[in-house]
Design a protein around this nucleic acid. Sequence first.
DNA 1: CCTACCGATCGGTAGG
DNA 2: CCTACCGATCGGTAGG
Lengths: 180, 180
Amino acid sequence: MEVAQKMMRDSGFHGTSMRDIAAAMNMEAASLYNHISGKEEILKSTCFGLAEKFQSGIDEVNDIYFNAVEKLQMAVKSHVQLLTENLDASFVFIHEWRNLNEPYRAEFVHLRDKYENAFRVILQNGEDEGLFKEVDYKFAVLTILSSMNWVVEWYKPDGGMTPVQIAEKLTDFILSGLKK
Amino acid sequence: MEVAQKMMRDSGFHGTSMRDIAAAMNMEAASLYNHISGKEEILKSTCFGLAEKFQSGIDEVNDIYFNAVEKLQMAVKSHVQLLTENLDASFVFIHEWRNLNEPYRAEFVHLRDKYENAFRVILQNGEDEGLFKEVDYKFAVLTILSSMNWVVEWYKPDGGMTPVQIAEKLTDFILSGLKK
DNA sequence: CCTACCGATCGGTAGG
DNA sequence: CCTACCGATCGGTAGG
């Protein structure tokens, strides 16, 4: 799976053939079918496996923390850590889920909506607690998720920032913006 | 080109065949080659055409406006307007440029870096003018661009928000964040 | 703009 | 885990 995810990160789902994957593992393509049922299984297990991890992360945050600022901080941290710990898989998760066939594609979108909704609830809590401005939640959540997900585009494990530092900078940006 | 861009938005570059495009135009695949040199030309003209429009937009903003806050506002507005006016093309531009072959892929990345740099200069101006906090510019620019680009994922022309309203909300978010 | 076709490659299977 | 192979489809060309 890891080999396949890395190749799909570089070349996309359609741009990576079963023969490519097999060659990278010093096998013939036919041999792969003793381990997986088909090419789509790679995509399915990558997308749904990560979706579950992300959801578990935010569920845990909502169980443990009470203050909306804290919840947002920890939710961002959980998300960024999962992304950086599963870089290739996350890239595939973010970019290639569209290649899932129905009904899996619809199911994936459903899980995504559920995750977005958990963030929305945090923002609403924040407003109720008087900590956050009144904002368009749907819009704000999409903006937050996009800035988090973009991390997979440029993050390098040996770069200057740790996942925790990235999460902190992101949270600062989300909470306070650029203006002095 | 518009038909091809729309199909590639739905199915990706590799997921859209010349036969698919031809069928949507009531032609045979072979006939397409009287109009374009090959499949990659669709991707090239989409990606480089938009890259030039985005760059012109920010160059104009930098020529006309002086205050960094104004520049940022107008740069976001220009970006969002171009995105929403060319939704299918923008989607391909953002998601499918990786399928460009060299040397075009490298050239595209170069144009992208140039565009990012123009945003970075605006943020530096803002700090010099005492309007913006001291921040990690590279990080801030990537966050801003990601939140702008994500608009293509959910924007619907007949939805509740105009491009200008989206640009305003985004600018507010970028400048002031969520916290009260 | 079409018919007819090319070589290459795809995901996957049979059978061992 | 392999050899051998299937039908389908791909981007693209020749020639009209």
